[in-house]
Write a protein that binds this DNA or RNA. Structure first.
Lengths: 227, 227
DNA sequence: ATCCGATCGATTGCAGACAATCGACATCGC
DNA sequence: GCGATGTCGATTGTCTGCAATCGATCGGAT
């Protein structure tokens, strides 16, 4: 029962949402775990209201499953989910790349290059978390440049799951830092051409590579899903 | 303060959500209108809680905009939104068609044909609402056959807006009933071929036609958006 | 007359209490 | 022994009250 050091410039719901997203993405809240509203509320020193709001949003993103009168459970992600997330992401990110190709501003390119430099420097030795953060930061810029609210929303809705998959993979196969830079660099150069078709193709290529690596993961099968 | 005739077999939140979706889609709640929690709660004879839940979800779908301490406002859809919804829908529905091509069951085809028959029969004279309902019902089957949770969620998140656009257009240009049947019939035949590439192409063709018709709509411009 | 600031009302954000519902366990009947 | 059934505890669904915050309005100064 201590004061939060961050005076809520933002609503408590968003605060709770951010914390839960983080804890689920890093696995601190394990898949299948039962999330009790009162426990969470007590732990974060808020009431159940904001916690409920956050959980409801997480459910709409598929991060948790809410069963009536039973509570929220962290979604158990299976090989099927890897495939779903990948195909879905390919669909929306192709479009994002297409649009970004003709909408990228100098500021966007500067930000991309900043991220790329960081990838290059940390190549070889970097905490998995940080590598994933850079990866996602790159794609965040892409969606921002696409200037498409619904696309951005869709990206946000799978972003944490992409984080989870990449993170899990990097922990098990720490080769990402070496392949991360060149692949993203290629995509950046394609975007610079300003041709939607070229950008789309590059995005599809990039995601295809990422998916190939992700398939190495050993995840629960569909039958392990809690009923 | 009278009893609801529907005993809540489902949670009140979902009940409120369904009602609000309907009222927004049909325009009973006008774009830009200020939605006060207490008013809605009183009107639906529930407390503010479920109303809050429903509004939060609608915001995540872009149906309403929530401003801190000011309340929820029905989103003002502009020409930009027509374009966003169209491009987004094209992205996800192409994927849905691709997947459905190899996953359609006899039951799915039967359902499609049922909808198509209804379209054929009502051709020429039918209430705009009903025409749109059939249109969406057709695509609902498509997403169901695609068997992809995240795709379905994405579809649901823009479904009401598609409804709104189609409905508005049909009221102004009542030619849909005549073009609706053949276009959907084409798509159905393409799906029957069982080839993902063919199905994707047909879906893109279909959506392209729909977008062309939608562009005739006169909608508010971006500058009319409430600040 | 216009611009700026303080006050006020309206509305939401959050908290806590009560009631409905679900699953688990024990008990009963076969 | 096994299955069905009733009861109970735990947890969420819903409701109401209070306080924080925002925008509007009014008043004053320039």
């Amino acid at each position: 029962m201590e004061l939060r050091n961050t005076p809520p410039r933002t609503s408590l719901s968003e605060y709770v949402l951010a914390v839960l997203r983080e804890k689920i993405a890093t696995g601190e809240l394990a898949p299948g775990q039962h999330l009790r509203e009162m426990e969470l509320a007590a732990g974060l020193d808020v009431s159940r209201g904001p916690v409920r709001d956050a959980l409801a949003l997480l459910e709409s993103e598929g991060q948790v499953e809410i069963k009536r009168h039973r509570g929220a459970f962290v979604s158990v992600l299976t090989q099927v989910d890897v495939e779903e997330v990948h195909t879905f992401r390919a669909a929306i990110e192709s479009l994002a790349a297409e649009r970004a190709a003709t909408r990228m501003t100098p500021a966007h390119f500067a930000e991309l290059d900043r991220v790329l430099d960081a990838m290059k420097e940390t190549s070889g030795s970097v905490a998995p978390q940080e590598a994933v953060r850079l990866d996602l930061a790159f794609h965040d810029v892409l969606y921002d440049a696409a200037d498409h609210q619904r696309l951005s929303r869709a990206w946000i809705s799978i972003r944490s799951q992409v984080f989870f998959f990449l993170h899990t993979r990097n922990v098990n196969f720490p080769d990402f830092p070496t392949v991360g830079y060149p692949e993203h660099h290629d995509l950046r150069m394609a975007l610079a051409k300003g041709d939607p078709a070229v950008a789309r193709a590059a995005a599809e290529e990039h995601l295809s590579g990422a998916y190939t690596r992700l398939r190495q993961l050993e995840l629960p099968t569909e039958s392990d899903r809690p009923r």
